[in-house]
Simulated scan of single mutants.
Amino acid sequence: MIAADETFRGTFPFAPRYSSAPGFRMHYVDEGAGPVLLCLHGEPTWGYLFRDVVRRFAGTHRLVVPDHMGFGKSETPADRSYRLQDHVDNLEALILDLDLDDITLVMHDFGGPVGMGFAARHPDRVARVVAVNGPTPFGQPGLAKALQDNGNEAPWFRWIARADRSGTLENVLGELNYTILSTLKLNGFENNDIISETWIEAYGAPFPTPAASRGAIGWAKGFATGAHVFEAPGDAARAKMAKVPALAIWGSADRTLGGKYFLPLFKDAFPHGTITELPGVGHYSLEDAPDKVAALLREFLDATTPAIMGA
């Protein structure tokens, strides 16, 4: 767990806030005022991934950026499983604790399944959806095949399966403090110009020991063992979410989550949604192309806010 007051030389200058509602100290950023943008990170990142979004949009929106259990400045309890369903439970507890409504979900990587899990439970609290290289599983019949086909192709998921079989997964991911850059590169990080000692330190800091790496280990192992359970929405939730404004921004150079597998699932969940693919941009599109992502997000928010306000 990163110290509450750590700013990484001013690159993450946001006041730390904590909620105990999920049963542990869950850290979140809460900056700005206005319509809520709830930004959900994935593996093996934390709220630092959205620092540019917070800076750009806090003048017009309320940015709430939680760190999932075992990541960033949140605690890493030893008695939790770190399965997908646990992360959905934690997010639900935080959102209800803060009483967030009219939420725009901005989801990256496994933030997608976590956010969509919340949407399945509370569709009336979700106003818009933005998937940034983040899958949007929502009870689609093609989900299992997409996961299998993507897993057979992606280097990250092939390594997870092999490492779990050989018993080395925990040992390798327990050293993320030292191997964070190679892990990010394996997943498809393209923008080498942004790499600095501070940047590497910020992404490696949540994982100083194997015990502190339970979050990253648990998420990977859950896929290797099939322990993750995707939330199944009811018919009313599916019908409601099919009508919300939705945007998918997908870096086409993603080596972990192939757009050809997951963008059809997005279109199934959001038949009126818009898809923009970014050539040459990798899995961490918020790092690879922050200007492009911000421009697309701003355009989407500007275009859809009046319709929501008049609904």
Rank of each mutant, 00 (worst) to 15 (best):
Asp124Pro: 01
Trp159Thr: 06
Asp30Tyr: 00
Gly115Gln: 02
Arg158Ala: 05
Phe207Cys: 11
Asp302Lys: 05
Arg80Glu: 13
Glu201Pro: 02
Trp156Asp: 05
Asp235Tyr: 00
Tyr178Gln: 15
Tyr28Met: 08
Tyr178Ala: 15
Val106Ser: 10
Ala289Cys: 10
Glu299Leu: 11
Leu98Met: 13
Gln85Ala: 14
Lys260Leu: 08
Phe223His: 15
Pro44Lys: 05
Ala211Pro: 05
Arg255Gln: 13
Asn177Val: 11
Thr183Cys: 04
Val106Asn: 06
Pro22Val: 05
Ala294Lys: 03
Ile275Cys: 12
Leu91Asn: 09
Ala4Trp: 00
Met69Phe: 01
Lys73Thr: 02
Val130Trp: 05
Val65Leu: 12
Pro206Ala: 09
Ala248Gly: 13
His61Glu: 02
Gly282Ala: 06
Pro123Asn: 05
Ala163Tyr: 00
Gly218Lys: 03
Ala311Leu: 13
Ala15Glu: 15
Gly259Ser: 03
Gly70Cys: 02
Leu181Ser: 05
Asn90Ser: 15
Pro35Arg: 12
Thr305Phe: 10
Gln85Asp: 15
Gly218Gln: 06
Pro233Val: 04
Pro279Ala: 11
Leu98Phe: 10
Glu43Met: 04
Thr183Phe: 01
Pro123Glu: 04
Glu31Gln: 14
Gly226Asp: 07
Gly47Thr: 08
Leu37Val: 01
His272Lys: 15
Asp268Gly: 10
Phe50Glu: 05
Phe50Tyr: 15
Asp52Thr: 09
Ile103Ser: 01
Pro66Ile: 07
Gln85Met: 07
Pro155Ser: 13
Gly72Ala: 11
Phe207Gln: 09
Glu31Cys: 07
Thr304Pro: 12
Pro245Val: 04
Pro16Gln: 05
Arg51Gly: 10
Leu173Glu: 03
His87Asp: 09
Gly117Val: 03
Lys185Gln: 13
Ser166Ile: 08
Phe189Ile: 00
Ala144Asn: 11
Gly174Arg: 03
Ile275Asp: 07
Val53Asn: 11
Phe223Thr: 08
His61Cys: 12
Arg62Phe: 09
Asp254Tyr: 06
Ile95Arg: 02
Arg51Tyr: 02
Ala120Leu: 01
